[in-house]
């Protein structure tokens, strides 16, 4: 895919995530945002905290990877590892994957700060995507979080983070819906 189109699509996706979070999730009460339908499933806060933990690692890694901007080739290419990683997090993939322990927020004390942090990460991610227009998206420059000897190309790593966020924001929307379904409903 053409590098500019590629980045524009990611930017549009992040803006949609901001919108969903602000319009659908932020107005809900803390009870709803903390609601877990069972012990194993994540609450809205837990979904967002999971994403925050990824952002805390990947955003600085992206910024570092772009410190030596080069003219990008017109096309975005993928490595084998990149393709595999994207397959795992793609929102359409219904398979549950196991979360590494330090990325699993289940059971931690979470509050509204999680939501604010998530939105801050999105603004920073948009800035990264804007700056990436002049970077080489095919340079192997981003160490994988759980195994830093492996590196992803900058472009595929950006796509990985965006798809991963889409996946868990969708999960958060489902958790919110379930929480609200448990509120009393009038039947006549």
């Amino acid at each position: 895919m053409n590098a500019n189109t590629f980045l524009q699509q990611l930017q549009a996706a992040v803006r949609r995530l901001q919108q969903t979070t602000e319009a659908e999730l932020a107005p809900l009460s803390s009870e709803v945002l903390n609601y877990k339908s069972n012990a194993q499933s994540w609450s809205v806060f837990e979904c967002l905290e999971h994403l925050n933990r990824y952002s805390r690692y990947y955003l600085p890694a992206f910024e570092k990877a772009m410190q030596h901007p080069q003219r990008s080739s017109a096309e975005v290419g993928y490595s084998w590892l990149g393709k595999k990683s994207l397959e795992v997090v793609r929102p359409g993939n219904g398979k549950a994957s196991k979360t590494v322990k330090h990325m699993n927020p289940a059971g931690s004390q979470l509050s509204r700060g999680v939501l604010e942090e998530f939105l801050q990460h999105q603004s920073r991610l948009l800035a990264v995507l804007a700056a990436a227009h002049t970077a080489d998206l095919n340079r192997k420059a981003v160490p994988v979080e759980f195994f830093r000897l492996l590196k992803l190309r900058l472009g595929e790593a950006l796509e990985f983070v965006v798809l991963h966020e889409e996946r868990h924001v969708q999960q958060a929307q489902r958790a919110a819906k379930q929480a609200q379904a448990a509120a009393p409903a009038l039947v006549v």
Partner: peptide, 13 residues
């Protein structure tokens, strides 16, 4: 049970 359900109404204090 009633309190739990009412607690799920987002704007109830």
């Amino acid at each position: 049970m009633l309190a739990d359900a009412l607690g799920q109404v987002p704007y109830f204090s």
